[in-house]
Amino acid sequence: MSVRAYAAHLGVAIRTVSKWEKLGTATCPWPDTQAILDTALVRADAAAQSRFEQLLAQGPPERRPGGAASPTLADHETWAEDLERIVVCLDRQDFAFAATLLERWLGRAQPRELDDRGLYLYGRSLVLSGDLRRLQGTLQDLMTARRLYCDAHSLFTELGIPRRAAQIELSLAVVSEMAGHLSAAAARYQQLTDDERLAPADRARALLWIGTALAKDGRNAFAIQVMRQAAERFEELNEPEEWATAQQKLALAHRGAGDLTRALAYIDTARSNGRFETPLQRVQIETAHAHVLLTDPATRSGGHVVLDRASDIAARYGLKHQLRSIKTVRTSEENT
């Protein structure tokens, strides 16, 4: 049985079974719990009882030095569930718990012992670990994220899953942009905008991110043209949140081009239409809003208030890349 199925069979919590599995022979259940296990064994059929006796005779499974036994088929369901939990943790910027869950599997699995399903889960774990590092965003994190993404790309290529491989290529381009390699990132985004391995929404994101890289490189007029195309695609695809993000980026591009009236109009549109539910999204919209407000002496004091609010959220959730962006905005404002 999977961990979930076995917990349901016994009538105990999933985390209880996971704890038994983690502790192995060091497990010492409470008397009531031991009674549940004893009853389950008595009620099991003869074949199950025979397997139980054989397992006792064999002793605990062989383990790697300093590690746990490699996952088995019975673990796959629990592994997949943990990956879903990790996605939620990353959305909420709960990096500590996401790291704990990832270490549970990456520290345990030996790729050479996994079947295709296990290798798929291992690849997804590598990608999510890369996402974790990318979201934290120090230069060291970005280097580690690149390595993790490259390992996952090789794995999904070997497994013959081109969509996953292409999504990783998109993430690698994001890492290049975050590391300041703007021209290389823009060129890679351009290649991916027409890549049939990607879903239409991912291709539209690649188009929007071309504009982001161009705007960071000071080519705002060209960036605005590309971003407008991306916004139109998101509207056609009925992706309202992505469309609102495009408005936010258009605001910054217009600010860079010196058109504060349009910049304010676009940032107001973004703030009115986006939900910005996660800490990262809130920091991004607040930083963009502050950047526009700080450009005009008449709204500069309000811009400082908004930027301080963004900085507080970024610091609280460990968004180090965003903190660097906020520092850049402050420095830019002080030099004008």
Results as ranks from 00 to 15, higher is better:
Pro71Asp: 11
Thr72Val: 13
Leu73Gln: 08
Ala80Val: 03
Asp82Glu: 08
Glu84Thr: 11
Ile86Asp: 03
Val87Cys: 01
Cys89His: 13
Arg92Leu: 13
Asp94Thr: 14
Asp94Ala: 15
Phe95Met: 04
Ala96His: 15
Ala96Lys: 15
Ala98Leu: 09
Ala99Cys: 05
Leu101Phe: 01
Leu102Tyr: 04
Leu102Phe: 05
Arg104Ala: 10
Trp105Met: 06
Trp105Cys: 08
Leu106Gly: 07
Gly107Glu: 01
Arg108Asn: 06
Ala109Leu: 01
Gln110Lys: 12
Arg112Lys: 13
Leu114Gln: 13
Asp116Arg: 12
Arg117Ile: 11
Leu119Glu: 04
Leu119His: 08
Tyr120Leu: 14
Tyr120Asn: 10
Tyr120Asp: 15
Ser129Tyr: 09
Asp131Met: 15
Asp131Cys: 13
Leu132Val: 09
Arg133Glu: 12
Arg134Leu: 03
Leu135Trp: 07
Leu135Lys: 08
Gln136Ser: 09
Asp141Phe: 05
Asp141Ser: 08
Leu142Arg: 10
His153Leu: 11
Ser154Val: 05
Leu155His: 05
Glu158Gly: 12
Leu159His: 04
Ile161Val: 15
Arg163Ala: 11
Arg164Val: 10
Gln167Phe: 01
Ile168Tyr: 00
Ile168Pro: 00
Val175Lys: 04
Ser176Gly: 08
Glu177Gly: 02
Met178Asp: 02
Leu182Asn: 01
Ser183Pro: 01
Ser183Arg: 12
Ala184Lys: 02
Gln190Gly: 08
Gln191Lys: 02
Gln191Ile: 03
Leu192Ser: 03
Thr193Gly: 06
